[in-house]
């Protein structure tokens, strides 16, 4: 189990299978899991190729160390799983691609408002890559398990199947399939921010004007957020085929569905990037154009 640049939330979700750990753990021989068992990177590098049955790779490749870890995992594991939306799509860190890396470093280090004389650390810190490319651009994965994080239930399903040696069967439905709200088919009159007004808990949120991208999102979560009063933010990425552009789908849906002129939609949607491609910017059409541009700069 490897962690690149990430929040470790996916692994927390795995641990969250709770009492089921009692069933799962004994069946596993953990060969590498920083923070949980005491194996170092050198140990991982030392294993023979393809000697590890299953590997889970969480997080984006942000630094050269991440890249090295990814390639090593690929070499050592028979089955490599892209674990969580960061690993699958670039996730929230992927949004950094929107800005030039130097700009990011300025904000974080050089012109940080709470630090004086800030500098970009260079000692004992791996080099930062100028752009986040989706992990699958570097290596082939055998399985993708998106989610931010993937729910414990989903992880348990996946792990159970893996242990039995069976294929992981995932329902292809979108979030809407699991959503309990009622659709009345009324047109969207105005696009609302999440804090505007009081949402009717029984009616479809999109219809009420709150932008929910559940229809463009894989429902592996079984409608967690929408059934709890929040719009879906798309953290599981698009439904199969999962490398399609989730943001483009959601935007074209909104454009068709809302009887508002484009200028008004543009004005009312304050953060299109954060709304439509929050987790999938790196794998979106526009995102890949960015990546190509960055790479061209290098040449």
């Amino acid at each position: 189990m490897a962690q690149a640049s990430s929040c470790w939330g996916c692994f927390q979700s795995l641990i969250d299978i709770h009492m089921n750990l009692a069933t799962v753990l004994p069946a596993l021989e953990i060969k590498f899991w920083v923070c949980v068992v005491d194996y170092k990177l050198a140990d991982l590098e030392g294993y023979p190729d393809k000697s590890i049955a299953v590997g889970l790779f969480e997080g984006v490749v942000r630094t050269e160390e991440d890249l090295h870890l990814l390639k090593t995992m690929r070499a050592k594991c028979q089955t490599l799983i892209s674990f969580g939306s960061c690993s699958c799509f670039g996730g929230i860190p992927g949004l950094a691609n929107f800005s030039d890396i130097e700009e990011c470093l300025d904000v974080k280090f050089r012109e940080n408002k709470t630090v004086s004389g800030g500098e970009v650390p260079s000692e004992n810190v791996p080099a930062i890559l100028p752009v986040i490319k989706p992990n699958h651009d570097y290596v082939d994965f055998d399985i993708f398990l998106p989610g931010c994080p993937p729910t414990s239930k989903l992880i348990l399903t996946a792990v159970t199947a893996l242990l039995k040696g069976e294929p992981i069967e995932l329902e292809p439905h979108t979030v809407c399939h699991y959503c309990d709200r009622e659709k009345k088919d009324t047109p969207v009159e105005k696009i609302l921010r999440p804090f505007d007004g009081n949402a009717d808990p029984d009616r479809c949120l999109l219809e009420q004007g709150y932008i929910c991208v559940g229809s463009a999102t894989w429902g592996l979560c079984e409608g967690l957020c929408v059934n709890m009063g929040s719009t879906c933010r798309g953290c599981y990425g698009p439904p199969p085929p999962i490398m399609q552009d989730q943001g483009a789908n959601a935007m074209s849906m909104l454009g068709t569905y809302a009887p508002l002129p484009p200028e008004e939609i543009k004005e009312q949607v304050k953060d299109p990037l954060g709304l439509f491609n929050r987790f999938t910017y790196a794998t979106s059409h526009l995102g890949s154009i960015r990546i190509k541009r960055e790479e061209a700069k290098k040449k």
Binding site: E171, H173, T174, C176, K183, A216, P240, Y257
Partner: peptide, 27 residues
């Protein structure tokens, strides 16, 4: 149908009114 989100976008989009909701399925 497995992928359909029942969002009605296609129903709205169709210029010929050719798409309807199959009420016999849930959703």
């Amino acid at each position: 149908s497995d992928l359909c989100s029942s969002c009605h976008t296609c129903v709205t989009a169709c210029p010929y009114g050719a798409i309807i909701m199959d009420e016999e399925q849930t959703p």
